[in-house]
């Protein structure tokens, strides 16, 4: 077990290194730079721009810049934002809360809804409900998230006036109810894809278990159907779902970014877009590394939990 963990950890570090090289190269090889925003206004002279580029160390060779970045990263210093001079971790920390709030609530919603649809679909396989759920999940996976957000806003904010069109809370009213009211729209939008994924996996996981011998045996013994479902099937079907949650992290992060844009949600997605536009290299790198770590952590936890649940797996990895 320890050996497995160490190996996975080593692998993860190697991956992070590759990720950092790819990310750094993409950012720095592209034309333009963090000073572009000041150039267009005609307010700062070329001499000013050149001087600041020099001061930021932007005109040194790329490998040198990367090596320096990596060295500082290894000593725990993620660098400072070009925009507000704050340490990158601090910048990420001050935006992560809003994103986590959105991701956790929508995951919870998706789990409950997805599990319900998936279980019902599996029990009543090939029923009208099952077919509709299948089609619905497929469409949910095909709708552009941002467009679904627009439709939600158009219907529930513009049309019916039930929901606010964006933001995390009303200025001057930070009450829990107010925040909850603002959370509904983005939560539904972000949960759409997850619900579809969950219901599909839940359904097939249930079907796998239903067809297994011990269920057939229980059924043959005359154990009531309801009890079979709850005690045998559901318990065993939920196991693989743990992995799904872990592996779903990247999709969820992507979805959060788009959802935050549509609903002007002040989270990591917004921060990422702002930072990309300003070419705030340290923050963009920070977010890329941070999300890569989240993704790896997600899959590691998935593996570990799965390993704990089913000891045979751990050894085979």
């Amino acid at each position: 077990m320890i050996g497995f963990l160490l190996r996975r950890l080593g692998q993860a570090l190697l991956l992070l290194l590759i990720v950092s090289v790819i990310g750094f190269a993409i950012l720095h090889l592209a034309p333009g730079g963090p000073l572009s925003q000041f150039a267009a206004g005609g307010d700062m002279t070329q001499a000013d721009l050149d001087r600041i580029a020099e001061q930021l160390g932007l005109n040194r060779p790329l490998p040198v810049q990367y090596a320096e970045w990596l060295w500082r990263m290894l000593s725990g210093d993620w660098g400072r934002s070009y925009r507000d001079q704050q340490p990158v971790l601090h910048v990420i920390g001050s935006h992560i809360g809003a994103t986590l709030e959105l991701m956790l609530t929508s995951t919870l919603l998706a789990m409950l809804l997805g599990a319900w649809v998936g279980i019902l679909g599996a029990i009543k396989r090939y029923s009208i409900f099952d077919s509709l759920a299948t089609i619905g999940a497929m469409i949910a996976l095909s709708i552009p998230t941002f467009w679904f957000g627009l439709v939600i806003i158009y219907v529930f904010s513009v049309g019916l006036g039930w929901l606010p069109a964006g933001n995390r809370y009303t200025v001057g009213d930070g009450s829990f109810l107010n925040q909850l009211h603002h959370l509904i729209g983005p939560c539904i939008v972000l949960a759409l894809v997850s619900t579809a994924v969950w219901s599909r996996y839940m359904r097939s996981s249930m079907l796998d278990v239903i067809n297994q011998d011990f269920v057939r045996t229980a059924r043959a013994k005359g154990v009531p159907e309801r009890s079979i479902l709850l005690r045998h099937v559901l318990r065993n079907a939920l196991l693989p779902m743990i992995t799904i949650t872990g592996l779903h992290v990247p999709t969820l992060l992507s979805g959060a970014l788009v959802t935050e844009t549509v609903f002007t949600w002040p989270g990591m997605g917004r921060l990422f877009l702002d930072s990309i536009s300003y070419r705030d290299y340290p923050v963009v790198m920070g977010i890329l590394m941070f999300s890569a770590i989240l993704v790896l952590l997600g899959s590691l936890i998935a593996d570990l939990l799965y390993g704990v649940a089913d000891p045979r797996i751990a050894g085979s990895h």
Binding site: L27, G32, L253, S254
Partner: peptide, 19 residues
């Protein structure tokens, strides 16, 4: 694996903002 570590939209946007 490394490429899959980037949430796809992050990678798409990071590059598309630069090309």
């Amino acid at each position: 694996d490394a490429m899959l570590c980037f949430p796809s939209i992050f990678l798409l946007l990071a590059i598309s903002a630069l090309i």
